[in-house]
Amino acid sequence: MIITLNNTQTEFDCEKLSIADIIELKSFTFKMLVVKLNAKLILKEDFSNTFVTDGDNVMILHLISGG
């Protein structure tokens, strides 16, 4: 499956892929993540039951304290 992850074409070797899987596979270890699948915001509680399909555009950004 090929998706656009954070502006980069990324290939995953699996047929079923949730947002939680992506976070684990790509080792996003920061706590404060904001996830957008295509134009839709995905909340933390839906990470494991939201699945991506080929060609999807996924944004996973992390936010760090300080300002």
Binding site: K31, M32, L33, V34, L61, L63, I64, S65, G66, G67
Partner: peptide, 10 residues
């Protein structure tokens, strides 16, 4: 300043 506030706003 706080990351949770940043997340809320985004």
């Amino acid at each position: 300043d706080a990351a949770d506030q940043k997340k809320m706003l985004v």
